[in-house]
Design a protein around this nucleic acid. Structure first.
Lengths: 262, 262
DNA sequence: CGCCTGCTTGACCTCGCTCAAGGCCCGTGG
DNA sequence: CCACGGGCCTTGAGCGAGGTCAAGCAGGCG
């Protein structure tokens, strides 16, 4: 009945992730999602020096309280930000897909208010805070675009608050699946109605505030309803409309629509 | 046993809220919390024209999907951002105290991803998006400070995710109380261990993802433990350390500490 | 005076948690 | 080649935190 598939498959975004010509600068990729860059702006962004680092699955990248001097963009893989409560339980507060900058807010706030973990083996592009801040000071449109990126993250947080505060287990999971597929699609990382999503059921629980056991039963319910498959680290949505309906999902909060140029 | 006190008392921040000399410009107040302004910067901020408006309790200020051309700061009172789910239930995703700018993110995102309501009768200071954006373009340090303000909001959202995802009812309420008192204090709106907090038990439920009934019983528990009083729209914390302990509260995420100047 | 809003209480129910055990797949080492 | 161990998924049984429904009460206001 239950198909068995190798765990933790290849990965996300590995094949020439986000552009054509060799290695596009991660900032250029991020910025041109919300802006049409001028040559000067592109040059300024590309001048920010990048150091690429690989991290293994379940490796801590940054710790709560850290005052890092560099921030990073996810090139491939999956990272998350989480916080630990008094009981020792962990809540994932954000998922970062390729193209995201998980700790961009750190450049402004200086201190990190949660841990950042690699969920799967990932490729990260580190940039110095100083260089990013200088870029912001010299290129106001780019500063605005980066600001906007952090505001979208905040909008996602708000929707997560709603998800955890008001929705039942099935809806929470369905909603998360809808969000992940929509964001993957926006990054060009989905194929049809499927995308890589190599997280464990335990991870899902920590993101949705549910126990591992209940996530398992909830997944069975979604599976048996014919809405999704979630096996082998891959998410396949069989009926998008029905899943969105089930999860009370409206993608407006992702601000993926036609870019609102200033 | 249960004392009865008039509902919806005077209000918050009414008495010469945030400064000495007549009416300080709301932007100046907000900005100088994280920055020591130069004369030029102060002048530029004060040049942003402001229109003050009073709103009644439970009045909608902005609606989800709106594309406002102005944003506002809370001068006095209490507002919130909330979202409504399919079942009709409402989740409050943010509380705004005097000094906050509830829809500052709207200047960059253009569209609002939730409703903004006046929780109590409030005084709001509206400013045009264009003027604020122009200020950002001309004064990079002010732009950074406003960006930072939205990042602190995001950090609060993340903590709320944790609150809703991992904590029991008593902890959720205790945590919220700690947060409100800390933020009120930071705005100079607390007196000793008490502050105005004129919300109904229903409002508390919508902020913490609990039913009204359960909020009521939970409040009794906190009251009988001698930790807080919450009557007559006023919050009084009798044992701060114990309440913080009970609510698993660590104020680090509020970024109230000594301002991290660039 | 009567209504409306907000608080309080009781009884019952259910969603989701906890505890516990077993199974499958894979990697490792003898 | 096989034995062993460790993730991760699955299933069952019992329980408990919190929801729902319903009613009553107190105070403010027209």
């Amino acid at each position: 009945m239950t198909e068995r598939v190798p765990v933790r498959p290849p990965g996300i975004g590995t094949p020439g992730a986000s552009g054509a010509s060799g290695l596009p600068h991660p900032l250029v990729g991020l910025l041109s999602r919300s802006l049409r860059l001028t040559d000067e702006e592109r040059a300024a962004a590309q001048a920010v020096r990048v150091r690429v680092r690989e991290v293994a699955a379940d490796e801590p990248i940054l710790r709560e309280g850290d005052r890092p001097s560099r921030c990073f963009a996810v090139l491939a893989g999956l990272t998350c930000m989480s916080k630990v409560v008094g009981t020792g339980a962990r809540q994932i507060v954000a998922l970062h897909l390729p193209g995201d900058m998980p700790d961009l807010h750190g450049t402004q706030l200086g201190r990190l208010d949660g841990d950042i973990w690699a969920v799967t083996a990932s490729t990260l592009a580190f940039m110095g805070h100083a260089a990013v801040l200088q870029l912001c000071a010299q290129q106001p449109r780019l500063a605005a675009a980066l600001w906007r990126a952090t505001l979208v993250d905040a909008a996602i947080h708000r929707e997560w608050v709603v998800n955890l505060g008001q929705r039942l287990a099935v809806q929470r999971i369905a909603h998360l699946f809808c969000e992940v597929l929509a964001r993957m699609e926006a990054m060009g990382l989905a194929s049809g109605d499927a995308c890589a999503f190599p997280v464990t059921q335990g991870d899902l629980g920590e993101a949705t505030g549910l126990s591992l056991v209940h996530v398992n039963r909830t997944l069975q319910e979604l599976r048996q309803a014919g809405l999704v498959s979630f096996e082998g680290g891959r998410l396949t949505v069989h009926d998008r409309a029905a899943l969105a309906e089930r999860g009370d999902f409206d993608p407006a909060y992702l601000f993926l629509g036609p870019r609102a140029e200033a």
